[in-house]
Amino acid sequence: MLTILFDGIAYGMLLFVLACGLAVTLGLMNFVNLAHGAFAMAGGYVTSILTMRMGVPFLATLPIAFAAPALLGLVLERTLYRHLYSRSHLDQVLFCIGLVFMAVAAVDYTMGSQQQFVAIPAWLQGRVEVLGIQMGVYRSFIILVCGVLALALQLVLTRTRFGSRLRAAVDDPRVARGLGINVGAIFAVTFAVGSGLAGFGGALGAELLGLDPTFPLKFMIYFLIVVTVGGTTSITGPFLASLLLGVADVAGKYYVPGFGAFVIYTLMIAVLVVRPQGLFARAR
């Protein structure tokens, strides 16, 4: 029981790191970035290649798994995404589906369609028993890292000058621009960081979630659930939503395996119907 809770929390933390970039993108520029999963996949593949083929230690690959998608995100944002902010959601969705198709086929072509693995150091493997709860060491590691990250994000967002500018831009881009805030630059940086975080999450989660070319499609819906349920105006909303989703998904798979993914899909529809602006968001 507690083990399920523990696994669920680890899963949820991972989802949060994966999805928080999307939350900001959606909240800030009203952009539906369905291709977010592609950045996560990029991070996962970077780590996989570095650890399995080049023998780089796992921990050393994590910064690279952050940097590479971040750079990719920055380039794509400046060249392509930028032109689509003022378009309709349908255009944005079509564009992102196109990107996802390209990413999936490109990875399939270069890496093959089989499942990729990540070499995790021995000291992160195995399980320990604490207070009668079976805890995977790697899952504890994920909870720790993601917890620190979430805390750091929250602090950056609420305590720094950049954070306050970002929040101002989220609340009302037009007024923010009027006050001399460079919304475009802020968005580029945020987009890059969000993509980087997705990549980081992809690298961390490759072991738990599995990694193959269909990753962006498989997890797209999870990210969207986190964002739509959590709302996009804060970090805490998606955070709570991720934890809820993680625990619900793990518990659902454990207790009612026959129902598979229904639980969360139904949950999402229900939340969207009752509260279109998200479960934890304040009504605007």
């Binding site: 392509l80 032109h83 689509l84 378009r87 255009d91 944005q92 079509l94 564009f95 589906i97 196109g98 990107l99 996802v100 198709f101 390209m102 990413a103 999936v104 086929a105 490109a106 399939d108 072509y109």
Partner: peptide
């Protein structure tokens, strides 16, 4: 064969960028 989705993706991206 099997990678044609890539080109469909390219087409979509161009279509949207040029203006649907």
């Amino acid at each position: 064969p099997q990678y044609w989705h890539f080109w469909i993706g390219v087409l979509l991206v161009i279509l949207v960028l040029v203006g649907r």
